[in-house]
Structure formats: C-alpha cells, structure tokens
Design a protein around this nucleic acid. Structure first.
Lengths: 193, 193, 193, 193
DNA sequence: GATGAATGAGCTTTCATTCAT
DNA sequence: GATGAATGAAAGCTCATTCAT
C-alpha cells in the first residue's frame, strides 16, 4: 500500500462527508467509515479535524490551479483567457460537485480557525484573473481605469454565486457552460477598451 | 421595558457573537452574556439556537429590502438604479459590518437546517436586481439576450465577493463606494445595448 | 372567592396532570395551565412541587378513609366489612381513575423526598383492614394464627394489583365489582376459621 | 476484559443507583461513577438513560423467571408450586434487595416511556401463577369458578405489597419466609375445592 | 393576592481525541 | 502502522422557583 493511499482515501471521504453534512456536523467517525479506516487512523495522517479541511483545500485547489494555468497558457488573447477561466471554473462545479460545495461553503467560514488560516492557494487561484486583466490592459485591450484587484473579485464572485445557485437548484434553465459564456461576455464588454 | 426589547437585544447580541465566532462556535451563554440576560431567557423568545439565526436573517434582511426599495423607487433610470443598489449594498457592509459578516457566512451553510430553510427574504433582495434589468430591457437600454435571472446572480456575486474581501482585509486601497461604482459601471457596460 | 378555592383547583389540576405525565414529567406550568392560574400562584398555596403531591395524598386519602369508615361502621359482620372495603376500593378506582393512578404510582416512589415522608394517611387506610381482621379473630370468625399486620398487606396488595391492571387495560373481561367480590371471597375463605 | 463486562458493570451500577435515588433523580454520572467508567462509556452500551432501565428489567427478570420455572418444574402438586413461587419471590426480595426495589418502583411508573413499553417479561413472570392455578383446576384441586387471570394478580399483589413493606421497614416481626408461607396458605385455602 | 417574565442551576448527550493492544 | 473502546469536557435546553409589578 502506497504511503499516500490512506491519506488520499481520507481526503476523498472528507470531501463527501463535508459536502453532505458541512464541516461542523460531520463527525470524524463519519469520515472514517466513508474511508473504511478506523477513527484513530485518521489521526496518523492529520493533526485534527480542522487539519483535514485545510489539507483538503490546499491539495485540491492546487490541482485545479495547475489545470487552469495550463489551459490558459495555451491561449494568448486575454479575452479568450477569461472565457477559459470561466468555463473551467464552471465545469469544475459540475464535475466535482461535492468538492465544489465544500470549497464554497467552508471557505467562507470565519471561525477562529479560519481567521488564522490565510488561504494562499485560493488567493493564487483568483490571482490568475487579475493577471489576465493586467495583461489585457498592457496590450490595450482592457480599459486602464479598471482596477485588476477589484475586477478579479467581481469576476470570481459573479462565477461563484452563479455556480452556487446551480449547485443548490434541482433544475436548470440553461447549461452551466452557457452561464460561463454569458458571464464572461458581460464582463469582457464591461472592461473592454 | 418594551415587549420587543429583549427580543431585539438578543438579536443584536447574536449578530455580534455570530460575527465573532461563527454560528457553530457561538455558545448560547455567549449570546446571553452579550445581551445581559440569562441563558434561559433566550428560550422565551426563540425556540432554539438555529431559530435565532433564521429570525436574524428574516428581520434584518427585511429592513434592508425596505430601505433599498425606497431609494430605487425614487430613481427612474435602470442604470442609476443598479448603481444605487450597489452603493446601498456596499454601504451596508461598511455600516453594519458584523451583520454583513453573519449574513455572508451563515447564509452559505449547507447543514441539514439550512437545506430545509428556503431563504425567501434573500431571494426577494436579489430579485430587486433582476427587476431592474428586466425594466432596462423593456426600455431598450439593456441587451435582450442577457438573462435577468443569471445576471442578477452575477451582479450580486460580484458585489458580495468584493465586499467579503473588504470586510476581511485590514487595509483598503479604495473606498467601498468606489468599488460599488466601478462594479456597477463594469456591469452596466456589459449589459448595455 | 373562597380561600380554599384556588387550593382545591390546583390539587384537582395536579391530579389530572400527574395522572397523565407522572410526577417527574409534570411541569408546574402544566398544572398552572390546567388550573387556569399563573405559575407563581401555585407557590402562594404550596411550598414546592413535591408539597403538591404530599398535600394531594393527605387530603384525598383523607376523604376516602372517612367514606369507607362510615360504610363499614354500618355493618357488623367482619366478612361483610371486608367485602365492603374491597368494593369501595375498587369503585374508587373506577370513579376516580386519575386520582387512583396518581396514588398507585407515586406512592411507590422512593426518592429522597418519599423516604422522608411517612405516609400516615395511607397507613391509616390500610389499617382499616387489620382492624376488621382483628375483630373477626376476637369473634372467632377468622383463624387466630393469621397475622393481621401481614394479612392486611396481602389483602390490600391483592386489590391494588388487580385494580392497577384494570386501570391500564383498555378492555376487561369482568366488572371491577366482580373482581372485588372474588378477591374478598378468596381472602375470606383463606382466613376463615 | 470480556465483551459483556462493561455492560454488566453498568447494569449493576444502575440497579444500585436507581434503588438509592429512583430513576428520575439518578444521574448518568452517578451510574458512571458507581460503575467506574466515564459518562460517555455508558452511551457505548445503551442508547439512553431509559434504555438502561428497560435492559435491566428484561435481563434481570429473565434470570428470575428461569430460576423459578426450574424449581416449580421439580414439583407436581400445584399447592406446593404456589408456595415455591411465593418463597422464591420473597427470598428474591431479601437477597436482591436493591434489584427488587427498582423492579417494584419503576415498574409502576407511567410516564410516556413506560406507557409505550409493554413489559412482556413481567407478564411472563406473573403468568407462571395463572398456569399453576389452571393446572390445579384441571386436577380438581382448585375451585373452577376462580378466574386464573384475576387470581394471579391477587396472589402476586399480595406478595408484592407485603414484600414492599418488608423492604421499607427497618425491623420485622416475622421472617420473610413465614410471610411467604402464610400468604400462600391463605391463598390456597381461598381457592381450594 | 395574582401574575408571568426572568432566572440559572442542572442534566443528558455528543464527539474529537487518546492510547493500550 | 492500525484499531476502536474509552474518555470527559462541553453545551443546548428545561423548568422549578422567584419577585417586581
């Protein structure tokens, strides 16, 4: 058995359980059961319950960032890049629904734990957007008076809120990809020169 | 002492404590202490801890909706109306920081309670945006292919995420009102005819 | 309003509530509601919850004793007297079902309160039986080797257990008066000379 | 440590504590302390406080039934069988005083829990008596007009009430075995042909 | 005397974490 | 490394009792 095998199984189990119950309502024994390990085993791989959540963030967002960056690097046009980001983000929601729910919900907790934790991985993810905007401004494509640090939040927030609803609603009037395209379309027109 | 006095005191105390610790970490005794009442007194006014949160949502968002609607009704131009909504929302974040934190964080919980609870007040609030967009489309100001139901989420998400950061950051490079104006500017250009 | 009016109303309400829920599960507010008085009013007439139960015992058993004694005094034959006692006891169960339930159940509690309380009224009630037996022995009707102090318990226990079942069962194969007659018949044959 | 060890220790501790304080006044921490386990450990073996009481009933009465049945099976004469039952019951009171107190008191509770719980074990125990009477009637030893279902209650009630007093009284004028013999003697004469 | 809002001690139950096996 | 029984602190909630009105 690979060293990381149980580690990975526990993270995957935690994603499922946190998505189903939320962090606070989830019990260690739920995660252990889902991962088919003993309760105590979890403490061989993680310091405490909160550590599972943090590790989950770091590792899973890490993978996503890698993937998005690769796809964006293959495209030069900042406008296309924004659309790629949006499509990627939304597809992620669709394909990794449980992970998305956990990231969306628990990311916003502001208990004493979360306040201590600076979510650098998340910042890194959102900063992909501001880099695109910056590049677009340098190329004369986007208006200079747009603040990239503000626009990145606005763009991310638009995607995030839309996807949040998508996740919660049982039925949908448009595909999640249409949503991604419409949002990036509105946004690009909004910041276009 | 007015009948509603204790009720109001407890709600205000809950806002503070939930903002400081989050719903789950907040103890009833914390709220009681903050409200300067006995623990048991809380249960004369609320059924349980969760009921405090729900009531807090309903009442506080209710007040906000009233206020925003009034201001928007005084303006005819949908573009101005969007800006008014944005400014209002952002000022709210600034003026009622603790309340905003609670609304932002706990609104996104997905425990068994929150899944049961259909947050109609929140929906009513966000629907103010789609009504404005719809009107703008009828007047030929906004593009018809924009889906109001999607755009309202995008606009609200943009404001919400930006404000979330504003709340968490200790220092700011722009005023929250500048943020509101820039976001509504980007958005309006994005959906303009 | 007579002085004793509220006192009586509370006792009657307590009988109902104790019968329905048992002493421990009964709340003061239940009794207050049933008696249509305020919670605090109860404490003008009784020292505490337990005092209601004790007073209830004393007063209600007191009334019963008076009634039984009168009827027994009108009869000379100890055998008839035993039957009168049995019939009276059983009719009481039928007519004052709620009171009977309370007396039967709570009388047997042995918490710290009940241990302190010497239930003299109850002893007085059961002693009616031993007096009858004693008289019967003096008259040569009952066997001398029967211990009145033991037989009284046996007779009372037989009636009590039978009635307890009667109260709990939804349907019955014999009337409670038949039961009274059969039990006193068995008992009399058992102690007859 | 045997699997059932803690289970048994907790039951034994509960018998002691329930006998001392009664079910309602007994705290889980009392039982835990008496059993020398942690409070939480109790919930590994029982669902809740009430479950302890029920399990205690089932298991302990079960043992008693087995014992009585064995002894009765060794005797053919229904009259002797009744005496054996009485002696056995009374010796039980003497030898397992605490258990007896709990069975006597809590069996008669009529809270919402107890009303739901059909005490089949207890019924099985008392039905031993009616079977004996029935047999005696078939053999022409006991009078046919005696209702076994009623007589069993009367006989059990006589024993039970007498023993209850025995348990509560600090001093006694006769042995509990004399009491058993006198009661079964009275009862047998009462139902004899 | 009557009220009922307010109190706060007290108790059951949960569950993250530990550690002997 | 793996287990899961055991721990015990912690907190939501109840309700007998009080007391200002």
């Amino acid at each position: 058995m690979r060293v990381s095998d149980k580690h990975h199984k526990i993270i995957q189990a935690a994603v499922k359980v946190f998505a189903r119950k939320g962090f606070y309502s989830a019990r260690i024994s739920d995660i252990a059961q889902e991962a088919r390990v003993a309760d105590g085993t979890i403490y061989l791989y993680f310091n405490n319950k909160y550590d599972i959540l943090i590790t989950l963030f770091e590792e899973e967002i890490g993978k996503i960032i890698l993937q998005v960056k690769q796809q964006i690097d293959e495209e030069d046009d900042p406008r296309k890049q924004l659309e790629i980001f949006a499509l990627n983000h939304m597809r992620l929601i669709q394909d990794k629904r449980e992970l998305s729910e956990v990231l969306q919900m628990e990311l916003r907790q502001s208990n004493k734990f979360m306040r201590e934790y600076r979510n650098t991985k998340f910042i890194e993810y959102v900063d992909i957007i501001s880099k695109i905007i910056h590049e677009g401004q340098d190329n004369g494509i986007f208006r200079k008076e747009v603040l990239p640090g503000l626009a990145k939040r606005a763009f991310f927030g638009a995607l995030d809120e839309t996807s949040r609803l998508w996740v919660l609603s049982p039925s949908h009037q448009y595909t999640i990809e249409d949503a991604a395209r419409q949002i990036s379309d509105i946004f690009m027109r909004g910041i276009n020169q």
